[in-house]
Design a protein around this nucleic acid. Structure first.
Lengths: 150, 150
DNA sequence: GGGAATCGGTTTTATAATGAAACCAATCGA
DNA sequence: TCGATTGGTTTCATTATAAAACCGATTCCC
């Protein structure tokens, strides 16, 4: 096969998501975008990514509707990369990754950045519930597959 | 630089998480593991991944504590790959990815697999709240950075 | 019990993705 | 106006990925 397999046509939503944002850099760029970064140079400095790769990733993220290009300031020539609505919707993904990393990838006493509510400083958590509001874990769930066409 | 930059030492938990599971295949393997797959051949068939790459990814996931190798059945020689506690803790990440994919990567009428509570069939959702239970969005949060050592 | 098929990989080789550096045009700042 | 910065693109070297061939150990089948 040439190149990497695409999961665009997969019926599993997780697989399609990974097809779009599952590469090494994209979510890091999105994280920085959530953090307020918007300019090419800012991403490049923050991530230490090669410029050609950053260029490619930004283009791809824009083409997929996760970032959009907007003029930087009023009537400015330079442009910025901003999260679209679709991009901002990745927030739960970022929070879930953060939460997992905090729990498993840090020593107890190790310094780390943390995500809190702006107004109160309360830490943010994420949980999984049924439609009617009961919290549940992986053991109580099941995936309903779509029937394979012969 | 040679190879890919490691984010192991980054103070951002999301970055460390991506360092561990941010590559192209790992989360797909984890998804399949949540789905009950456990054998080398099962993963290989499900993902269509090259065997050498699968071999490498499984080894890495085991070495990082996300999967563990257990004997398949009583006294069996063959072995299986199972999610560890740390691996099962990735459930919210999978749900978040799934939710995003459902919302943005499918046509309204397109068939898709869905995640539901086993006993009731109710669909599963995920949301972000403060410690005291109020649901919030990205706009109401802020990241507290760890002070950079000079 | 013997042979064939399957399982769970490893090795080899080709190709694609990534990274670093050099380069460049347009803009900005002094 | 001139030099520095920004935002890239191009080129080339290196690394990762993929496909296929291979292989030993098991399991299936009769």
């Amino acid at each position: 096969m040439v190149g990497r397999r695409s999961l665009k046509a997969d019926f599993c939503p997780s697989a399609r998501s990974l097809d779009v944002i599952g590469d090494w850099w994209s979510l890091l760029i999105v994280r920085d975008a959530f953090d307020g970064l918007a300019r090419f140079g800012e991403f490049q400095k923050s991530l230490g990514i090669a410029k050609n790769i950053l260029s490619d990733r930004l283009r791809t993220l824009v083409s997929r509707g996760i970032l959009e290009v907007v003029p930087a300031g009023e009537g400015a020539v330079r442009q910025e990369y901003r999260l679209t609505e679709m991009g901002r919707d990745l927030f739960p993904v970022m929070v879930a990754l953060r939460q997992w990393g905090e729990r498993h990838l840090f020593e107890a006493d190790e310094p780390r950045s943390s995500l809190v509510e702006r107004d109160t400083g309360l830490s943010v958590r994420l949980d999984i519930r049924t439609q009617d509001g009961r919290a549940i874990g992986p053991g109580e769930t099941v995936i309903l597959k779509v029937p394979e066409p012969d």
